[in-house]
Write a protein that binds this DNA or RNA. Structure first.
Lengths: 149, 149
DNA sequence: GACTTTAATTATAAGAATTATAATATAATA
DNA sequence: TATTATATTATAATTCTTATAATTAAAGTC
C-alpha cells in the first residue's frame, strides 16, 4: 500500500464522515487530484477522466470539486484570467507561479499564523485562513533562448 | 488641494510618462478608483460612471482597467466566484475579506520580503511579487442576529 | 488653430468558464 | 430488495471578459 493509497483512504473516510456519497466519478476526481502534480483545471480533470467515464458531464466535475472544497479536501486557486485550478489539500504549503509559462510549483514555508492573529487584533475579524502566492519567472523561462535568429 | 488630488495628479503624470492618452473616460475610471473604498468590480465602475458618460461601453472600463494595471497604477484582485475587483495601487497593503458579506478591508502589514527571497533560493524562480489575502468573518457579521424569530 | 497620426471609444458579437434545470440513475440504508 | 435522497447527465442559461470593426478624439507638428 503506497502513501497515496493511504491518503485516498483517509479522504474517502472524510467523505463518509461528512455524509457525502462515494460515486465512481467522485472517487475518480478525488484520486486524480491526489496523484496530480499539475494543479489541474476542471477541464483538465474532465479530459483526463473522459476515457474512463465517456458519459460524464463537465458539470459533474464542477459539482464534485465544489463538494470536495466544501468539506475541505480540495483548495481552489483563482487567478485573473482563465479558469480556476484545484489542489488536493494535503499539507500546508504555498504556491509560486511562473508569470511566463503559468507553471505552479509548491513552496513550503511555515504557516504565517502571526499575520492571522495580528489581523484579528487590528480588524476585529474572526480569521479562518489566508492564502498567499508568489509570482515570478521559473528557472526554465529564465534560460536564455538558444534558438534566436 | 486634497491628498487625493495630489495622488490623482501623480497618477496622471504616470500615464503621461507611459505615453498613455488621458481621455475623459480613463480619467474618470482612475479618479473613481482613487476615491473608492469598496474595491469595485468593473461593473461597479461602469454603473458609477454611466451618469456622467451615458454612451460609455463596458468594454471601455475593462480596457482602461487593463491599461492601468499594466502600468502599475491598479491591482486586480481575483477570487473564485464572480468578477475581479480592482484596487488603486497606492501603498503596499494586504486585504482581509469577509466570507459572509464579501467586504474587503485593507490591512497594513510589513511586506513579506523574506518569503520572496527564500522562495527564490528554494525554487530558483526570479520572484517579482506576491499576494496574500486573509479570510474570516467581519465584526458586523459576527454580531448575534437580534431579529431572530 | 488646423492637420495628421495613432490610440481610444463605442456597439456589438463572440468566447469561455461556470451554474441552473429537469429528467434519469444510483448509493446508502432499512 | 425496496426506498429515498442525492448524484449524474444533457442541455440551456448566465456571467464575466475579450475581440472586432467602424467611428471618434488626444496629442504632437506645422
Amino acid at each position: 500500500m503506497t502513501v497515496s493509497d493511504n491518503k485516498l483512504q483517509e479522504a474517502i473516510d472524510t467523505l463518509r464522515d461528512s455524509g457525502v456519497r462515494i460515486t465512481p466519478q467522485r472517487h475518480a476526481v478525488l484520486e486524480y487530484l491526489l496523484n496530480s502534480m499539475i494543479h489541474p483545471t476542471a477541464d483538465d480533470i474532465y479530459k483526463a477522466l473522459e476515457g474512463k467515464f465517456p458519459n460524464m458531464s463537465v458539470a459533474t466535475v464542477y459539482n464534485n470539486l465544489r463538494v470536495l472544497r466544501k468539506i475541505g479536501l480540495v483548495r481552489e486557486l483563482t487567478y485573473g484570467d482563465s479558469s480556476s485550478r484545484f489542489d488536493y489539500n494535503s499539507s500546508e504549503h504555498y504556491h509560486i507561479i511562473c508569470e511566463k509559462c503559468g507553471k505552479i510549483q509548491d513552496f513550503h514555508y511555515p504557516t504565517l499564523d502571526e499575520v492571522e492573529s495580528l489581523a484579528e487584533q487590528v480588524t476585529g475579524f474572526d480569521v479562518s485562513h489566508h492564502r498567499m502566492e508568489i509570482y515570478g519567472e521559473c528557472e526554465e523561462c529564465q534560460q536564455p533562448e538558444t534558438q534566436k535568429h
